[in-house]
Design a protein around this nucleic acid. Structure first.
Length: 610
RNA sequence: GGGGACGUAGCUCAAUUGGUUAGAGCAUCGGACUGUCGAUCCGAAGGUUGAGGGUUCGAGCCCCUUCGUCCUCGCCA
């Protein structure tokens, strides 16, 4: 076998005159009857191979049979291309390899799509033939970035005294949080493992174990419906530290992100990273993960709205709701139908009952005032006050939602981001980092008439709020923190409860009985009683981080073998039926749906689609 | 579970109001060609219009069911 001496993309003028051996896939071929040209591809890039019948007739003859995606090895000499023959589109375009010996290692069927045009090919086909899709340089770059992030993570934590410790994949199901993926046990009949939603309790127990500093790049599983930026199977950079407060955890871990952005993107993350409290984030951005790349902050105008004669506003405020809005700079260019069709539809999909609007324009007398069908319900004084509240100028568009505060926020936050992008307020290549802190420990669950953890039940309250556990749980702040980049939460964590008494009180408030707590988390509560150090940690979403670093909005782009929205792998066709004998061993029986049975009746002997 | 978009040749897309034999580009196959680089030129082949049912003289198009992909709400401690 001819052993490779160089990667295709590495060759350049410095190799002039050298005998080289390169291997890879035929990216394209151009047969002139006389000369034959091949662009050969490996993961580093392309290089042009020339086959000259006068110099190497055998290689030339063989080269005429080559087709795209065949796998070949070429031995030849590097030579500069003549004047005017260089290809500026190719990194190796100043040279070419004159082939002396061609070895065809493998032929290939015609690929289902052209690799160079794959960015226009439907994702379904790309996922079916993922091995071909991944040959593209853009995909290989994403894989490389992901690798770089993992490598930097391991180096960084190693340098700081962390150990990478694996935790079980086959774990115990707990009813809290997301739906579990279950794995039936063969040896314990009728019992199930759950795949981990995160290694949360294990990493805390590792702190009790005296491990002191732990990290893991770990696969997690949550059986919930996917979105563009999440799927059921994902990867966390999971971290935990002992004898620390939240400042220690934030500083240590922003150091990791700082290094990643510097080394991968050459982006300097500010030091220190700006902080924002949860109340401020909700107030000004309507969401706990504010996109700080542009202003356009939300403003509460309930006080002004209350004084108007616009009933939608006044009645909302009287019922305890709010009138909140934003001012889109230059937004007056939206036509009335843009606003009332597109923007109103956008917010009503998010639960808002309507969207009030005012364009800031010059009237006949030259006065710049908000104008719309509802401006007549406001005095000129009030209109001016509105403009002042938003610092609005001529040509701006003010938009308002009147509703319960959480609904107004839920509608306005995505609207703000949509408008920010549409109005070009987001600069490409801009990264804005912020730590969001001071989350409430609980949120009230109206349906269940109890409190829910905002983060998770092991999050520690802020010490000076501890006394409120009995009297005022709704206003306890937690020692939790989220790192947000460009409106995307890339990591979150907290200082944990290490006191069994406090942990028990929290379970009480979550309406988890002592007995339930014992059966679900007994092993963990027991561990806390045997000398738990104060500890805290964080987890980063490796997939989302890689998305930011590669500039994609699709999580499947940064996962080598992703799943579709129904959790299927189109390449392997998982999940699939299993043999009856496997089910028997596990003591499982599968109940078929009616339409499945009907189909089998129609086509005897044909099972459901695999 | 709800809402939306889509599904026509290997790929990306056309196809008038429901009307003749469903077209084009790229890819593929054959041929030509002395330096191309998304080569070019000539020619050929390629279709159960995702599947099933219905309406109709007639369905890619209308209706129903179903399968699949994507986006989204719910969900995601």
């Amino acid at each position: 076998m001819l052993k490779r001496t160089h990667y295709c993309g590495q060759l350049g003028l410095s190799n002039e005159g050298q005998q080289v051996i390169v291997s890879g896939w035929v990216n394209s071929y151009r047969d002139h009857g006389n000369l034959v040209f091949i662009d050969l591809r490996d993961r580093t890039g392309l290089v042009q191979i020339v086959f000259d019948p006068e110099k190497y007739p055998q290689a030339h003859k063989d080269s005429r049979t080559l087709r795209c995606e065949w796998v070949i090895t070429v031995q030849g000499s590097v030579r500069p291309r003549g004047a005017g023959l260089e290809n500026p589109k190719l990194a190796t375009g100043k040279i070419e390899v004159l082939c002396g010996e061609l070895i065809i290692l493998n032929m290939a069927k015609t690929p289902p799509f052209e690799i160079d045009a794959a960015n226009q090919v439907g994702e379904e086909v790309r996922l079916q033939y993922r091995y071909i899709d991944l040959r593209r340089s853009v995909m290989q770059e994403k894989l490389a970035v992901r690798h770089r992030v993992a490598k930097i993570t391991r180096d960084y934590f190693d340098e700081n005294g962390f150990w990478e410790i694996e935790t079980p994949m086959l774990g115990k199901s707990t009813p809290e949080g997301a739906r579990d993926f279950l794995v039936p046990s063969r040896l314990v009949r009728g019992a199930f493992y759950a795949l981990p939603q995160s290694p949360q309790l294990f990493k805390q127990i590792l702190m009790v174990s005296g491990t002191d500093r732990y990290f893991q790049i770990v696969r997690c599983f949550r059986d919930e419906d996917p979105r563009a930026d999440r799927q059921a199977e994902f990867t966390q950079i999971d971290v935990e530290m002992s004898f620390v407060d939240s400042e220690d955890v934030m500083q240590m871990n922003e150091g990791l992100i700082r290094r990643i952005f510097k080394e991968v993107m050459n982006v300097d993350m500010p030091n220190p990273v700006p902080r924002m409290t949860y109340p401020q984030a909700m107030d000004e951005y309507g969401i706990d993960r504010p996109d700080m790349r542009f202003e356009m902050k939300l403003r509460n105008i309930s006080d002004i709205a209350e004084k108007s004669t616009f009933q939608v506003f006044t009645s909302t405020v009287q019922k305890g709701g709010v009138v909140k809005g934003l001012c889109a700079p230059g937004g007056a260019k939206y036509s009335r139908s843009d606003i009332e069709k597109t923007l109103t539809a956008f917010v009503s999909d998010l639960g808002a009952k309507g969207l009030a609007w005012m364009k800031v324009e010059k009237d006949e007398s030259g006065k710049v005032l908000p104008k719309s069908s509802i401006s007549k319900f406001f005095t000129e004084e009030q209109l001016k006050e509105l403009m002042k509240r938003f610092d609005a100028h001529e040509g701006d568009l003010m938009l308002f939602v009147a509703d319960k505060e959480n609904i107004a926020n839920k509608a306005l936050a995505p609207l703000r981001v949509k408008l920010g992008k549409e109005l070009g307020l987001v600069k490409p290549g801009d990264f804005k980092f912020v730590w969001v802190t001071d989350f409430p420990l609980f949120e009230w669950n109206e349906d269940e008439k109890r409190y829910d953890s905002l983060h998770h039940p092991f999050t520690s309250p802020v010490e000076e709020d501890l006394w409120k556990l009995e009297s005022d749980p709704a206003h306890i702040r937690s020692q939790a923190y989220d790192l947000v980049v460009n409106g995307s939460e890339i990591g979150g964590g907290s200082v944990r409860i290490h006191n069994p008494t406090v942990q028990a009180k929290v379970f009480d408030l979550l309406n988890i009985s002592r007995q339930q707590a014992q059966s679900r988390f007994g092993f963990f509560l027991k561990a806390l009683e045997y000398g738990a150090p104060p500890h805290g940690g964080i987890a980063f979403g490796l997939d989302r981080l890689t998305m930011l670093l590669t500039g994609t909005e699709n999580i499947r782009d940064v996962i080598a073998f992703p799943k579709t929205q129904r959790g299927q792998c189109l390449m392997t066709e998982a999940p699939s039926d299993v043999d009856q004998s496997q089910l028997d061993e596990l003591n499982l029986r599968v109940q078929k749906h009616l339409h499945q049975l009907e189909q089998e009746e129609l086509e005897p002997g044909v099972g459901p689609k695999q």
